[in-house]
Each structure stands twice: as C-alpha cells, then as structure tokens.
Design a protein around this nucleic acid. Structure first.
Lengths: 125, 125
DNA sequence: CAAAATGGTGACTATATAGTCACATATAGA
DNA sequence: TCTATATGTGACTATATAGTCACCATTTTG
C-alpha cells in the first residue's frame, strides 16, 4: 500500500499534471537528461521563474519528476514510471476492446460521421 | 491527418479530457460496451443529466467517445485510438529513458526519499 | 396531432487553476 | 563576512472548468 494516497488518487494527480501543455513540455525537456530549475526556466522565456517552479512542483507531486538537491542547485529528473502505469491501466486494458468492438465502432463512425467530426471526409448523409 | 486541428492540439484535448475523474469513469463504463446517454446518466446519480452530457461532449471532442444517433437515442461508444496514441507518443518514447538514466534516477530517489513514494514493488532494471 | 421519452442548449454560480509580483532562504566564493 | 546566485513561498488576479437550472427540440407511439 502506498503511503499517503491511493493508487487512483495518484493516477488522478498524474492525469491532471499531464493536462497542461507547459508541463508536458517540461517533461519533453527532461527527456534529454536532468536539468536544474534555472536551466528549465530559461527554456520558457515567456513565463516567470515561479510559474515554471509551480509546474515543476505539480509534476513532482505526481511523481513524474524527481528532484535531487545538490548544493544550492536542484536537479530535476524525469520519472517515466507513472507513464508506464497509465499504459498498463488505460491502454493495454482498453485494447481488449479493439478486437471486440472496433468493428461496430467503425460502423458507428461511418454511419454517422459524428457531430464534432473534425475530419472532413463524409457527407452528412 | 485531421483537418481542423494539429496532432498536438488533439493530444491536448485528450489529456484534458482524461484529467477529470468523472470522465475517466464514463470511459470505464463504456468499456463494457456502448450505452445510451440516459443509461450513462443513471450511473451517476449524484450528478445532473446535463453534467454528464457536458462530460460526454468533451470526451467526444477528444474523440475518446464516438456517438451514433439512432432514432431519438444516442449510443455512445468508446474509442481507444487516442489512448493508443498516448502510449505511442508518451510511453514508448519515454522508455528509452529507462535503460539510460534510470540508474541515476534511482540514486536521485534514494538520496532524497522524495515526497510520496507509492509503488515500491520491484525496482525495474 | 398529442403525450411521453430522449436528448440538446444558454445562462449562471462556484471553485480550481495558471500565472505574476514581491519577498524570503540558502549556498558558493571572493 | 559580504555578495551574487539558485531556489522557495505567501498573497493576489485572471481565466477556465465543473456543475446546476430552466427551457427547447426531436422522435416514438397511441
């Protein structure tokens, strides 16, 4: 059992953390390797330092980022584990669906060209 | 490729749609098969019909749900494709990280015992 | 057509979130 | 110690989002 939060609460934090484009950009920057807070701040000139730090703290709360203090600098590391958990609970689990209902789903799409059909193609019957 | 929005804009909609627990619950309900709007509403007694419908529209905007109208009933289908895209862009891509930097990441975690360490189980690697 | 059932929508409130500013803390090095 | 650098935080504003209510539209069926 986790310590302070349940698994689903953790997932909620992870999804909420991923919901912001700036935070996803931060993760992308950390993909190349660890960075200090100041280095990250420099990647977002349009935002204040504290803005970036708040995003960093949210990412750390979701355990998508792990930080290590070294002297007066804070090294921020990417942690892909929560992403892996999303895959296990939300992608692989849902793919059972594919074989079973993808055909009728396909029918649904084709026979309707749904409401918000962002993509062209169909004449609306 | 979609017409009205870029891939990253679509991903943003998907992540934002997934950020809400009610919407994730709706997806879970649809996992068992298609449901009408009224059927879904009945699954959330604590929320009004319109509340559920707004969530449904958001899910449909993110293409996580596809709806098909049949007479006066609307059948809502799960569409797992965006989840699959999340995997391809945000999980498999990040797993390169694992081999490379998981060791120093592990050090970072250990030397800090960060915030909330939920999952112990097996250390990867 | 009339009634009932299903679904859709505009306007509103309450709360959460993004982002900023000013100020505080801590470490490295002269 | 003094100072520059790197990071941390409380309080605030602006905007987005969740959720509700009352009302409207469409379709089935008698």
């Amino acid at each position: 059992m986790p310590s302070t939060q349940s698994q689903s609460e953790h997932m909620d934090e992870v999804f909420k953390a991923l919901a912001d484009p700036t935070r996803r950009a931060i993760l992308d920057h950390l993909k190349d390797g660890r960075k200090t807070t100041t280095q990250l701040v420099q990647e977002f000139p349009q935002m204040t330092r504290f803005g970036v730090m708040k995003h960093l703290n949210i990412l750390e709360g979701a355990q998508l980022v792990v930080s290590k203090k070294e002297g007066r600098t804070r090294w921020n590391h990417l942690n892909a584990v929560p992403l892996r958990l999303i895959y296990e609970r939300w992608v692989s689990g849902y793919e059972n669906q594919w074989a079973g209902s993808l055909i009728k789903l396909k029918h649904a799409v084709e026979s309707k060209h749904t409401s918000t059909n962002s993509q062209k193609k169909g004449d609306p019957q």
